[in-house]
C-alpha cells in the first residue's frame, strides 16, 4: 500500500538548513498537538484502560474491586454472551455476503452506459444518508404483524394465485423471523453505499482491457471473470473489510426494532450486551471484557482477510 511510503526529508541547500529544521519541528508539533492529545485521551489511553478495568469489578462510581480473571471466566460461561455471539455471527453472515454481492450486481447493472444512471444512483443511495433510527421505525411499522403492509402484500399475492394465504407472520415478535427481518432491513439500508464504491471502481477499469479481452475471444462472462473481477478486487476487499467490521458492531436497528434483543434474546448482539452491562447494570469491568472480546474477534477477522487477500486481490 502506498500508505506506508515514508516521506524522505528533502535536503535544503545552504545556511537556512538548521533554522528550517527548527521551524518544521515547531510547526509540526504545534499542528499535530490536538491530535496527539486526542490519541492519548480518546484512543491509546482508553484502549489501555479498558484492558485494565477488565480485571476489576466496577460500577464507575464507587472504588473498583480487583477480581483478576473473573470477568473473562464469566464471559466463557455467560449463556447470554454465547447467544449474543451466535446472533452477531448470524447477522454478519446473513447481511455481509448477500449485501456485497447484491451491491456489485447492482453497480454492474447501472454501469452499462444507460441513461438516468445518476437518478438510479441517487435513489439507491437515499437510505444510506438517513439515520438508522428513522428508517428502523418505518420498517418496524412495515413489519407489523396485524396491520403491516408486508403481511398484507403476502396475503394479496397468495390470493392472486388462488392460494390460501398463510397466518400473518409476526416478523419482529417471532424468534425465527426477527433476525432475518432485521438483516433484510440492514441490507436495504447499506446497499447504496457499497454500490457507489463498486460503481466508481467499475468506471475506473480501462476500456482497452475489455477490448483486448474481446480480441482474445472472451465473451461476456470471460470479460467479467478475467478483467472486471481482478481489476476491482482491491475495492472488493475494502468493501468486504469495512462491511464486516460494521456488521460486527450492529446496535442501532436492534435498539429500535427489537428492544433488549427481543423476542427471547433472538436479536441480542454483542454490542447490545455490552451496552446493557455498561450503561444499564453499571458493570464496567464485565462490559469492558465484552468489548475486548469484540476487539479480538474483529482483529482476527481483519488479520485473516489481510492474509487471504494475497490469494485473490490483484494490485496493479
Amino acid at each position: 500500500m502506498p500508505a506506508h511510503q515514508a516521506v524522505a526529508p528533502q535536503p535544503v541547500p545552504g545556511r537556512r538548513r538548521g533554522s528550517l529544521a527548527r521551524t518544521e519541528r515547531f510547526w509540526g508539533l504545534l499542528l499535530s498537538s490536538p491530535y496527539i492529545l486526542g490519541l492519548l485521551f480518546f484512543a491509546a489511553g482508553p484502549i489501555l484502560f479498558s484492558w485494565i478495568i477488565g480485571f476489576f469489578e466496577w460500577d464507575s462510581l464507587t472504588p473498583p474491586r480487583f477480581v483478576a480473571l473473573a470477568n473473562w471466566q464469566r464471559l466463557f460461561t455467560d449463556p447470554l454472551f454465547h447467544k449474543a455471539l451466535f446472533n452477531t455471527l448470524y447477522f454478519v453472515l446473513g447481511s455481509v455476503p448477500p449485501g456485497v454481492l447484491l451491491s456489485l450486481l447492482l453497480a454492474m447493472a447501472v454501469n452499462r452506459g444507460i441513461k438516468g444512471i445518476t437518478i438510479f444512483r441517487t435513489i439507491y443511495f437515499t437510505p444510506v444518508v438517513t439515520s438508522v433510527v428513522a428508517v428502523a421505525l418505518v420498517w418496524t411499522w412495515i413489519y407489523d404483524t396485524n396491520v403491516g403492509i408486508l403481511n398484507l402484500l403476502i396475503e394479496r399475492t397468495f390470493k392472486l394465485f388462488g392460494a390460501r394465504p398463510p397466518e400473518p407472520i409476526a416478523w419482529l415478535n417471532d424468534p425465527r423471523f426477527a433476525m432475518p427481518a432485521i438483516i433484510a432491513m440492514s441490507i436495504w439500508k447499506g446497499l447504496g453505499y457499497n454500490m457507489v464504491i463498486f460503481l466508481a471502481a467499475l468506471q475506473d477499469v480501462p476500456t482497452q482491457l475489455y477490448e483486448a479481452a474481446e480480441l482474445d475471444g472472451a465473451g461476456r462472462l470471460g470479460k467479467f471473470r478475467h478483467v472486471t473481477l481482478p481489476m476491482i478486487s482491491p475495492v472488493t476487499f475494502f468493501v468486504l473489510a469495512v462491511s464486516l467490521i460494521g456488521a460486527f458492531q450492529v446496535f442501532d436497528q436492534i435498539y429500535i426494532m427489537a428492544k433488549d434483543g427481543r423476542p427471547a434474546n433472538s436479536t441480542l448482539t454483542i454490542v447490545y450486551h455490552l451496552y446493557n452491562h455498561a450503561f444499564r447494570y453499571l458493570e464496567m469491568g464485565y462490559a469492558s471484557t465484552i468489548g475486548a472480546a469484540l476487539f479480538l474477534m474483529i482483529f482476527a477477522v481483519t488479520l485473516f482477510q489481510l492474509w487471504a487477500q494475497k490469494r485473490w486481490v490483484h494490485y496493479q
Binding site: A287, S288, L294
Partner: peptide, 15 residues
C-alpha cells in the same frame, strides 16, 4: 487506531 472498534474506547471515555 484505525483497526480498533469504538466500543473498546466507549466505556473509558464515558468514565
Amino acid at each position: 487506531t484505525l483497526m480498533v472498534p469504538y466500543q473498546v474506547t466507549l466505556i473509558p471515555v464515558f468514565i
